[in-house]
Amino acid sequence: MKGVRHYPGFLGITIACLVVLYAPLIVVTIYSFNDSNSITSWGGFSWRWYADVFTGPEADRFAAAAWNSITIAFLAATASTAIAVAAALAMIRGGRFKGKSATYALINLPLLVPEIVTAVATLIFFSTIGLTTGYLTILIAHITFCIPFAYLPIAARLSGIEETYEQAARDLYATRAQAFWLILLPLLMPGVISGYLLAFIISLDDFIITNFVKGAGMETLPTAIFGSVKQGIKPNIMAISTLMLAVSVLFVTLSYLVNRIGQKTRT
């Protein structure tokens, strides 16, 4: 079979895609080190905008927003991963049960529904039940839409683990709980970690839903950045964006590596 490289136009399409996807990121990253006040003309290399992020006039706002983002991401990833593990166990080890396909659809719904719809629906839901928007409502919304992102790697890992390991444990006098904690969970760990990191990054990055349910005076990093940009893009935004990009790349890479190590230990 001919390799994909031999198709006509392969090189052109590849370059076009790479440029469209990555050129903005590269520009932002480069200009975050720009010494100039302008966002378009290069004035030499400098760390000044990074310093500005941590010590400048907006530093307190960004610090508070970053704190909210990170704590929410941590809590949402933890909760959604726990729920995803339970869901994966039910879907893959639970045998046949009524409403299984419906359950599967429900778990993955946040992937399919346009985010703006989820955002509006979630806001209406909170106001209907009388929950004041704020930290808690952001957290609840994040847990919800993080579930499928945590679920997918966990479920993929679980379906690759043969049931005989748990049966062997049960056969060797382990209770259901012991078989789960001592045998299945360690085997499932690469999927769990990968799902956790993915959920964390999805929560950290979310803007649309957060913006709807955050309430007045409450900011996460993405909404804080958006707030600043509305008054004109300053180079410090590029520095923040580059920092977030670095965190995202780090987490996605970790998730990928953990999965790869996991594949090697699969027996």
């Binding site: 390991y165 062997a168 056969d171 209770t175």
Partner: peptide
Amino acid sequence: LEPNLRPVNTVFQQYALFPH
């Protein structure tokens, strides 16, 4: 009776040794 309460042990076809 649950498998863990039965005084029998099994050698599985693919051994099912705990890989970790």
